[in-house]
Design a protein around this nucleic acid. Structure first.
Lengths: 226, 226
DNA sequence: TTCATAGTTCGATGCTAATCGAAGCATTGA
DNA sequence: TCAATGCTTCGATTAGCATCGAACTATGAA
């Protein structure tokens, strides 16, 4: 009885620990080489190569050749979404065997996760917004409160524009280093964009690090402390 | 290297064909017994029992004991969402080895999928709304157009109320019998509720069948035919 | 009590897939 | 041309797990 709904094939691709490690690493939004992914997954390059071939065949990742390196990225936003949902479930059911996070203190502090803010400051943002009752979180997910909608408008975020997109407005994304949630979804991404626009922070080139200026970090603290 | 991010454990649970068959069947929204699920998956009761134990331990499904039956349901909306996203990916990458759908013609025509309309009429609804340009669908998902927002308000659906929920407004859900998409998400569910309220259709007790009245079906056709 | 149905546990089997060592290409740089 | 690096292919090993037959428990009906 080897014919089943195809979700099994996709889920099986995500269901191997080594592959899941690689995909989690790719959630950072950066393109990574095969050897980097092998290290992330804790397997030898040969094994990683075999896994990457499978992921590529299943169109979970897509490769880009550059010099003698092969850079991989997630193949689309639906993959990101699937990983986020799965992380949420894993978190809910308590399977919390968390990867060792990045060592670099700057990475731990603030980095991009795909297109939104992660790291300690990402978690602080999530908690701060929740404490100010601008977002609300329960078993079903996260949502903006009425006060949160007012805040977003005041902060210069075009909510109607975001709603017109297909992407969910708010989503929890389990942090890779800390084991707490930070804010993903189109609203999470818009917030980070706004931080860039306001000059609070900038993304270091060729890196996942988000570096806040002193003044920017102060404004950020004011934002999340009621 | 057996410690990985927990998404692998969850994904692995969804990644077996037999289990995926069971879970797909549970997307219907009905609670099913262990033997029914065994038939759906095409395995013997012993095998099914083993799978169900795993799914239960992983909190993917939850059991309810009634007489000498054990009824299983999906353990939460996040599981439904995960399955829908995975179906979307599987559809996109072309892994379309589709299950044989239900035999009952009434089931093929119109049934509930969790809480929204599925079957031929579900697909027709999706296509009709798209043709009237009330919804828009691309690689990233589905969304209401401005015209669609007007329509929803006119049709008596409280969009702001839905937006306050954590659940995505619109989502594609791959049909179980046909291999086309129908409309899920909170808007899809609200539409079906509205059909009930308007007396167009009702759900048969102890079944997944949605039966439209003659007048109701006519109104439905008018709705989706521009 | 006896029988039937629903479901589980146990044990044996067999297949699949993850893993790594070793060798093979391919690209870059000297 | 030679060496080094990045990555893949091949082959052998191993471990895990899905599967089912057979036996067991539990609930309900006659």
């Amino acid at each position: 009885m080897k014919e089943g709904p195809d979700i099994a094939r996709v889920a099986a691709l995500l269901g191997d620990p080594a592959r899941a490690n690689m995909l989690t690493a790719l959630m950072s939004g950066r393109a990574l080489t095969a050897t980097e992914l092998a290290q992330e997954a804790g397997v030898t390059p040969q094994t990683a190569s075999s896994h990457l071939a499978k992921l590529e065949a299943g169109q979970i990742v897509k490769p880009r050749k550059e010099g003698r390196h092969r850079y991989f990225t997630l193949s689309g936003p639906d993959i990101v979404e699937a990983l986020e949902v799965l992380m949420g479930i894993a978190n809910r059911v308590g399977h919390n065997r968390v990867r060792t996070g990045p060592k670099d203190p700057e990475l731990r502090k603030a980095r991009v996760c795909y297109d939104h803010l992660a790291g300690d400051m990402g978690v602080a943002l999530f908690d701060g917004l929740a404490k100010r009752k601008l977002i609300e979180s329960d078993l079903n997910g996260v949502a903006l409160t009425p006060a949160g909608i007012d805040f977003a408008n005041m902060f210069g975020i075009d909510l109607d524009g975001l709603r017109a997109k297909r992407r969910p407005l708010c989503r929890e994304c389990l942090d890779w280093s800390a084991r707490q949630s930070h804010l993903a979804g189109s609203f999470g991404a818009a917030l980070l964009d706004r931080f860039y626009d306001l000059g609070w922070a900038r993304r270091l080139p060729e890196s996942r690090i988000v570096r806040f200026s002193d003044a920017g970090e102060k404004s950020f603290r004011d934002l999340i402390n009621p």
